[in-house]
């Protein structure tokens, strides 16, 4: 077949457009990171390379508090979402159909079908009233709201893993008189672990990424990293914003690289 006039895998112009696409995606991010190393206060006026703005950010109490809130919030929300989503995935897979299966499915996917701003407004209306009625203004509202919209994201990989899993091992365990709980703990759970881990990471990143819902629901002093960044953007445009943005960028790179290595080892 060497005499074919063209290669089937070549699409004219695709390579040029594809490389342009990578350049477009990365130039703004590279410039953002470069700006974060600028000593000067005014963005764009280059006054030399330093870690000045990183040092300032790390001495900034408001930023550190926001980082702590983000970490606690994302960890708790991802944990709740992953546990409940794992249970839900066990409930909705490998069945021969049961009453209400469709309903459960629609409910579990509902949060991703509604625009974030709408969910934020809806939650604001309710939670403002609960805050007033109970006087409680803690982080609990954000944790549970984040859990709700993280569940679909945790659910997807766990469900996919369960559906691809071989039933024979569990049947074998049952045949050898292992109890239901014992089989689950010793056979199902270890096999499911990569899915659960992927679900947790996905939920964690989704929670960490959220701007709108956190911004609407937070009580005073409950800034997360993104809402703090949004506030700073409104107040004053200094290079510190670029330092904080670069740190967030670094977190995503680490998470992507981490999950990459994890999935590689497993398969």
């Amino acid at each position: 077949m060497a005499d074919r006039a063209f290669d089937t895998r070549r699409l004219p112009g695709a390579t040029v457009l594809a490389l342009a696409c990578f350049v477009i995606l990365y130039i703004p991010m590279v410039i953002l990171v470069a700006n974060s190393f600028n000593t000067g206060k005014v963005i764009g006026q280059w006054e030399g390379v330093s870690l000045h703005w990183y040092a300032r950010a790390l001495q900034n109490d408001a930023f550190l508090a926001a980082a702590r809130t983000s970490l606690i919030l994302a960890s708790l929300a991802a944990l709740i979402a992953t546990i409940t989503a794992t249970m839900a995935a066990l409930a909705t897979t490998r069945s021969r159909g049961f009453r209400g299966e469709g309903t459960i499915h629609i409910v579990l996917n509902q949060p991703i079908m509604v625009p974030e701003i709408v969910l934020a407004i809806a939650l604001l209306i309710i939670i403002a009233q609960i805050k007033q009625a109970t006087g409680y203004t803690g982080l609990g509202y954000l944790v549970i709201a984040h859990s709700a919209f993280c569940i679909p994201f945790a659910y997807m990989p766990i469900r996919a893993r369960l559906e691809g899993m071989d039933l024979t091992l569990e049947t074998a365990a049952a045949d050898l008189y292992a109890g239901r709980l014992y089989t689950f703990r010793k056979v199902t759970l270890p096999l499911l672990a990569p899915g659960i881990l992927a679900g947790f990471m996905l939920a964690f990143v989704i929670s960490l990424d959220d701007v709108v819902i956190s911004d609407f629901l937070k009580s005073p002093g409950q800034d997360t990293l993104p809402t703090y960044l949004l506030g700073e953007l409104r107040r004053n445009l200094t290079s510190e914003i670029y330092a904080i943005s670069s740190l967030l960028l670094l977190i995503s790179v680490l998470i992507v690289a981490g999950s990459w290595l994890l999935t590689r080892k497993k398969t």
């Binding site: 969910l119 709201a145 709700a148």
Partner: peptide, 28 residues
């Protein structure tokens, strides 16, 4: 019994989403 067990397992996730995503939309 199987359906009941499955509903029990799904209940926490369904409850969280119902209370903090579906119900608020109803209020809207």
């Amino acid at each position: 019994a199987d359906a009941r067990r499955r509903w029990g397992l799904a209940a926490p996730a369904v409850a969280i989403i119902t209370l903090f995503s579906i119900l608020p939309l109803g209020v809207v």
